[in-house]
Design a protein around this nucleic acid. Structure first.
Lengths: 117, 117
DNA sequence: CCAATGTGCAATAGATTGGTTGCAATCTGA
DNA sequence: TCAGATTGCAACCAATCTATTGCACATTGG
């Protein structure tokens, strides 16, 4: 039932890519306007190579895409994978709500069966 | 602007806690019914101590709470932090949509200014 | 052409992660 | 009471992550 199913790898990639504020910042920046690793690095406290690695993580999660333009490599945000993450969270919420509802009903049943005493 | 702000640590914890399918599985299981580390370990391919560490990560992200009941420690899912994660994702989507809208308008302006030729 | 810019790749170092084993301490039920 | 079950903690290990430095290669603008 709750055994790790197939699509989990995708979620692993998306959630753990977002589990780093530097990467979230890069993603937000790229959501506003596409950019290159060098440009991003100029506005960041880490080296261009470190930025490139972060972008690689985001790209592996399909949260960004890259396209070569001459000597530049332009990165763009592609927010579609956020839908997968949202869907999982919505499902978790639903499961939780279902449990609460079960508890509520069990409580009501108990109250009813004790009503005559 | 996009520098790592304060509340980022909370998001770091939530997203990276969810970036592991074992932990997502534990969270889902606990959403259905509260349980202890030992009980969870019996249904898992890893040791009780490993489970405890995963639960510690989830607890640090406030995705579960623990309560001692005699010799047992019962863990429960607390899905509120998912709201923070959802909110961030919604914001990112909004930023992206805004950029697309800007592009669309720029395109329309260009088309209009070329209309007379 | 050629200097400047941008990128790619490798080696390294240190921190963190995910898992293990082993053992001590605590609680409970029969 | 006391044996069994549950938890807590520490040491340890291998693998992965984050960031660095250094260098080679490719592209462009003047």
């Amino acid at each position: 039932m709750h055994a790790p199913a197939g699509g989990d790898q995708r979620l692993d990639a998306v959630f753990s890519a977002l589990g780093d504020s530097t990467r979230r910042g890069l993603f937000e920046t790229l959501s506003s306007s596409p950019s290159t690793a060098s440009e991003l690095a100029r506005a960041a406290p880490i080296t261009r190579q470190a930025i490139t690695k972060h972008l690689g993580v985001l790209e592996a999660a399909a949260l960004v895409t890259s396209e070569r333009d001459g000597r530049r490599v332009v990165y763009r945000a592609t927010p579609e994978p956020l839908d997968d993450a949202s869907a999982w969270m919505a499902g978790a919420q639903t499961a939780w709500d279902a449990r609460i509802e079960r508890l509520r009903r069990a409580h009501a049943r108990r109250r009813d069966s004790n009503a005559g005493q």
